[in-house]
Design a protein around this nucleic acid. Structure first.
Length: 107
DNA sequence: CTATTGACGACAT
DNA sequence: CATGTCGCCAATA
């Protein structure tokens, strides 16, 4: 079951989150299919340009997978970054979404 | 309250 | 290109 953003906000999990976490999940939810964002870009989008690391921590909790497409978030240097279920599966998901790998350091 | 940790970033070497 | 160092921030113990 893939929850919509509005449905996510009604869950009991959501109510327990901090504003920072909520902002991260919202920003990530809006990443269009076939595109990627860096942790840095997410941080900037939520008004905290220096919180890229904290963004990664937030996504690691991954409370709303797969509703929140956290696999579309990568490192700013083009590397894949981490993933709760292993970076290999992260790459697989991106390939299924026809992401442009040209700019990424992935074969 | 302090200390530690981690799906990061920028820069130097 | 590969490593190391330092800075950063929020969550957690």
């Amino acid at each position: 079951m893939i929850l919509t953003l509005s449905q996510i906000k009604k869950t009991n999990k959501w109510s327990g989150l901090t504003n920072f976490q909520r902002a991260v999940y919202e920003a990530t939810y809006r990443i269009p299919k076939g595109e990627t964002r860096t942790y840095k870009q997410i941080a900037e989008q939520i008004g905290r340009p220096n919180s890229a690391r904290a963004v990664g921590n937030a996504l690691h909790q991954n409370l709303f997978a797969p509703a929140v497409p956290c696999h579309r978030v990568i490192k700013s240097n083009g590397e894949i970054g981490g993933f709760a279920f292993g970076s290999a599966s992260k790459i697989t998901l991106l390939k299924k979404e026809q992401v442009n790998f040209a700019k990424l350091k992935i074969k």
